[in-house]
C-alpha cells in the first residue's frame, strides 16, 4: 500500500530518468516480482526448519547406533530397521495401535454423522448445542486421559460401580487387551466426536435443499436421506475426517501413557504390553533406559510409512462411496 501511494505521488516532476530514478524503478520491479514470494516465505522457512530438516535428520539418525548417553554414533545402515522388524514387541504395538484405531475411529465417525444430522434439525438453542459439541475437544488431552483413567479404575472407578449396580461383574479394564483398548478408544472418541460432528454439520449445510425435497417426494425417510443423500454429497469431508482421525489415531500417546499410571506400565502399556501403542514403543526406546535415539528414529520413520499406507488405504476405501451412489 505504501509503495503504491509513493508511486502515484512521485512521477509528476521529472521526465528524464536520472540515476536515483532508475534505482527506484528497479526497486519497484523487484518489489513487484519478489514480494509475493517473501510474503509466503516464512511458512516455507519454518516448515523447512521445523518440518523438513527434522524429518531428514531423523532418517539420518535412524541409520546409526545413536544413544543420548554416549557421544559415539556408529553407522549401522538399516540395522535398526532390521532389529525393529524382528522385534515381536513392535508387531504387538502395531497390532494394538490398529485395534485402538478401529475401535475409536469407526464408532466415532458414525456417531459424529448422526449427531451432525440431528443438529441440522430445527432445535431450540441451536448455538448452545453446537458449541457444546466442541467442549470435549477444548479440554486438554492430559485432563481427559487422567479423568477417564479414574472412571475406568478397577476398585473405585465409576464405570465399574455402574456395572456392579446393574448386576454385571467388575472389570479390570487395564489388565485385559480388549478392555484396555476399549477404555482408550472411549477417551479418543469422547474428545473427537463433537469436533467431527461440527465438520460434518458445516458440510451438510452446503448440500442444496432441493435434493432433500426431491428425496422427500420420493418417499425417503430421514435415515435414508442421511445415508443416500447426505453421505455421498459430503464425501470429500468424510475423506478428510477419516484421514485426519487415522493420522491422529495412529499416533496416540497421552491416553495410553496416562492410562498405564506413573510407573513402568505407563511406558510398556501394561505389564503384558497389552495397550502399548507405536508411539509408546518409540517412547520406551527413545526416552527410557538407554535413550536409544537411533532405534527410536527408525521406529518414527516406520510409523510414518505405516501412517501413509493406512491413510492411502482409507482413501481408496472411502472413494467407493461415490461409485455406490
Amino acid at each position: 500500500m505504501t509503495i503504491a501511494a509513493k508511486r502515484t505521488a512521485d512521477p509528476t516532476g521529472r521526465s528524464s530518468p536520472t540515476a536515483p530514478r532508475r534505482f527506484q524503478l528497479l526497486r519497484y520491479r523487484l518489489d513487484l516480482k519478489a514480494s509475493p514470494y517473501l510474503y509466503i516465505a516464512p511458512f516455507f522457512v519454518l516448515f523447512a526448519v521445523f518440518g523438513l530438516f527434522p524429518l531428514a535428520y531423523t532418517a539420518w539418525v535412524s541409520t546409526h547406533e545413536w544413544s543420548l548417553l554416549s557421544d559415539a554414533h556408529v553407522f549401522v545402515g538399516l540395522g535398526n530397521y532390521q532389529t525393529l522388524l524382528g522385534d515381536r514387541y513392535f508387531w504387538n504395538a502395531l497390532g494394538n495401535t490398529l485395534s485402538i484405531l478401529l475401535l475409536a475411529t469407526v464408532p466415532q465417525l458414525l456417531a459424529a454423522l448422526l449427531l451432525a444430522h440431528l443438529l441440522t434439525l430445527r432445535l431450540r438453542g441451536q448455538t448452545f448445542w453446537r458449541m457444546g459439541m466442541l467442549l470435549p475437544n477444548v479440554a486438554s488431552v492430559v485432563a481427559v486421559a487422567v479423568i477417564f483413567s479414574q472412571l475406568f479404575g478397577r476398585d473405585f472407578g465409576l464405570v465399574n460401580w455402574v456395572l456392579e449396580s446393574l448386576g454385571a461383574g467388575r472389570v479390570d479394564w487395564q489388565s485385559g487387551s480388549a478392555t484396555s483398548h476399549i477404555a482408550i478408544a472411549v477417551m479418543v472418541a469422547w474428545k473427537w466426536t463433537g469436533y467431527n460432528a461440527l465438520i460434518y454439520l458445516a458440510a451438510m449445510q452446503s448440500v442444496p435443499r432441493e435434493v432433500y425435497e426431491a428425496a422427500h417426494l420420493d418417499g425417503a425417510s430421514r435415515m435414508q436421506q442421511l445415508f443416500h443423500v447426505t453421505v455421498p454429497m459430503i464425501r470429500p469431508t468424510i475423506v478428510f475426517t477419516v484421514i485426519v482421525s487415522t493420522i491422529y489415531g495412529l499416533q496416540i500417546f497421552a491416553e495410553p501413557q496416562l492410562f498405564g499410571g506413573g510407573g513402568p506400565n505407563g511406558v510398556t502399556g501394561g505389564a503384558s504390553r497389552q495397550f502399548q501403542t507405536l508411539t509408546l514403543y518409540l517412547y520406551e526406546h527413545g526416552f527410557n533406559r538407554g535413550f536409544e535415539f537411533g532405534y527410536a528414529s527408525a521406529v518414527a520413520w516406520t510409523m510414518f510409512l505405516v501412517i501413509v499406507l493406512v491413510a492411502l488405504l482409507n482413501y481408496l476405501f472411502i472413494r467407493r462411496i461415490r461409485s455406490d451412489s
Binding site: 483413567s149 479404575g153 476398585d155 473405585f156 479390570d172 499410571g261 506413573g262 510407573g263 506400565n265
Partner: peptide, 16 residues
C-alpha cells in the same frame, strides 16, 4: 491386591 504403586487406585487403597 494387584495394585501398581503411584496410581490413583493405589492411593485410594490406603484410606479404603
Amino acid at each position: 491386591n494387584r495394585l501398581q504403586a503411584w496410581t490413583p487406585e493405589w492411593n485410594a487403597g490406603f484410606n479404603e
